[in-house]
Computed example of a mutant assay.
Amino acid sequence: MAKILQNAWLAACLGAITCNVLAVERSAEKNYLLRCVGCHGQDGAGAPNQGIPAFPGLLDPLYSNDLGRTYLTHVPGVRASSLSANEIAAVLNHVAQRWAKAPHELERFTAEEVQVRQKVEVPDIVALRRHLTGYFRARGIELAPYPWP
């Protein structure tokens, strides 16, 4: 009887862990749908003529660069999302997995990283984006169009 109870307890724990892992993945997609689709669209195409950059094939430089990663955690929609650091990390990882050219080569965000990067003061997100665009352009790498002045 003790062995049966022990196995049942172990099965329940493993089931809970599996459900939590799946919930995080669903949560990232759900949070993208609830908080990002309005601007970036379901296909990640954005609205470049309105200053909303497209995602497909244009994310890798930002995810691969220290300052680019800070920028991603300060994008106005991310900052205003009311998501936890864990949820932001999951959404950023979901976006990279879905639209980066080489998602398996990109470092995944963690909640701890999001917390640290969001503490970095970014007084002007447009100026930061402009700086990153110039930095990458000088290296022959184009980011998604960004028409802000």
Rank of each mutant, 00 (worst) to 15 (best):
A54R: 15
N93W: 00
E113S: 08
R35N: 08
V116R: 02
G134F: 04
A144K: 09
C13F: 12
L106S: 02
R69I: 09
G140M: 02
A111H: 00
A144M: 09
V91E: 03
S27I: 07
T133N: 08
R98F: 01
R117H: 05
N20Y: 09
P145R: 00
P147S: 12
N93E: 03
P149D: 13
T70S: 06
L72R: 01
L72T: 11
R98Y: 02
R108V: 14
A28K: 01
R35Y: 05
T110M: 07
H131M: 03
V116Y: 00
G41V: 04
H104P: 00
L34I: 06
I88K: 05
L34A: 06
R130M: 03
Y71S: 07
R139P: 13
S81V: 03
Y63E: 10
F136V: 10
R137A: 15
A80H: 10
I141L: 04
R108E: 14
G41Y: 02
G57D: 09
A8L: 15
W148E: 12
T73R: 07
V95N: 02
H131R: 07
P103E: 01
A47P: 04
A11H: 06
P48S: 14
G15T: 12
V21E: 03
C39Q: 07
V21M: 11
E112V: 12
G41N: 08
R79W: 00
V37W: 02
I52C: 02
G15P: 06
D66G: 05
A96S: 11
G57M: 06
L128R: 04
A144C: 11
K3V: 11
K30G: 00
P76R: 12
